[in-house]
Simulated assay, not measured.
Amino acid sequence: MMRIPVSAILTTGMALTSASASAQTYDPGYPVCLQTYGRDGNAISCGYSSLAQCKASASGRAAQCIVNPYFARPQAEPRRRSRTLPGVSE
């Protein structure tokens, strides 16, 4: 009697955990993305370092270039502070 509910719970749990994960749409390594439109659906590919480069790929296609909202800008080097304070002489 206990076998039916347990197997139903296990089957449901496996089905829920094996749901396909969607790939990340925006690559944080590039600042510009190409969004294409087609019969099979729309696609976004981020692999462009400039708008000009992206526009060359988009030319003549049902596509547009967009700024990547998830672009991870390189971190700037922290500025070194002077050890002496202004107005204080050593």
Rank of each mutant, 00 (worst) to 15 (best):
G13M: 03
Q24W: 00
M1F: 09
T11H: 09
G29Q: 07
A19M: 07
N42I: 14
Q64S: 07
C33H: 06
G41S: 14
R73I: 03
S82N: 07
L16N: 11
T25E: 01
D27G: 04
S59D: 13
L10K: 02
K55R: 11
L10I: 00
Y70K: 11
A62K: 11
G38M: 12
A15C: 08
S49N: 15
K55C: 04
P78Y: 06
V88F: 06
L10C: 04
A43P: 02
D40L: 15
S57G: 07
T12H: 07
P28I: 10
P86D: 08
L10Y: 05
R83I: 02
T17D: 05
V32R: 00
Y30D: 00
S82F: 00
V6N: 01
L16T: 09
P69N: 02
A72R: 08
S49T: 14
Q53N: 14
Y30G: 00
S22R: 09
Y70W: 11
A72C: 09
A21T: 08
T11R: 06
A56I: 12
N68I: 06
R39F: 15
R83G: 03
M2S: 14
A21H: 08
I66G: 02
T25G: 00
A63S: 13
S7F: 11
T25R: 08
L85Q: 13
Q75Y: 03
G60Q: 10
A63G: 05
R83L: 14
Y48W: 15
C65P: 00
A72K: 15
E90D: 09
P78G: 07
L16S: 08
P5V: 01
S7E: 05
A52N: 03
L34T: 04
L51Y: 01
G38F: 14
P28T: 01
R73H: 12
Y30M: 02
D40P: 05
T12I: 02
I66N: 01
Q53S: 05
F71W: 06
P31S: 10
V32S: 03
Q24E: 05
A76S: 12
Q64F: 10
R79I: 09
A58K: 01
A23M: 05
G41N: 13
G38T: 12
C54H: 02
R79T: 10
P78V: 04
A58W: 03
D40C: 02
Y26V: 06
A72D: 09
R73G: 05
A15D: 11
A76M: 13
G87K: 10
S18R: 05
G41P: 15
Y70T: 08
I66M: 10
